[in-house]
């Protein structure tokens, strides 16, 4: 599964932030950008956001809901939630390894 995540190429990091944002509830594009900026301080442009959304939809990790006021809210799928959990576990492992090695240095 992690390798599938890495298949996203330059959208890997943005995709993780999107999944994290949607883990907090359904959102449309602009709400996601605002949310991500708020919890991570990371900002990105619409072209990058929709490049990542396209890939996440294609992988079935998120799904677009019927449009509300011409905007489609997006929802994290069950498979997306599994991928997110696995990705976060990998990141936690990296952080733990980093902490341990830093302590030795």
């Amino acid at each position: 599964m992690p390798s599938e995540f890495n298949d996203l190429g330059r959208f890997t990091d943005v995709a993780l932030l999107i999944l994290l944002s949607l883990a907090g509830g359904e959102k449309h594009g602009y709400a996601m950008m605002e949310d991500i900026a708020q919890f991570s301080g990371v900002t990105f442009e619409a072209g990058t956001l929709y490049g990542a959304l396209l890939r996440l939809e294609r992988k079935g990790w998120i799904t677009a809901l019927p449009a509300e006021d011409r905007r489609h809210p997006y929802r994290l799928t069950a498979e997306g939630a599994i991928v997110l959990r696995q990705r976060l576990a990998t990141l936690r492992q990296i952080v733990a390894t980093g902490d341990a090695r830093q302590a030795l240095a």
């Binding site: 944002s21 907090g24 509830g25 959102k27 449309h28 602009y30 709400a31 605002e34 949310d35 708020q38």
Partner: peptide
Amino acid sequence: NNISNASQSAS
């Protein structure tokens, strides 16, 4: 949920 609500109000 707080994050979600905050972002929705921001939007």
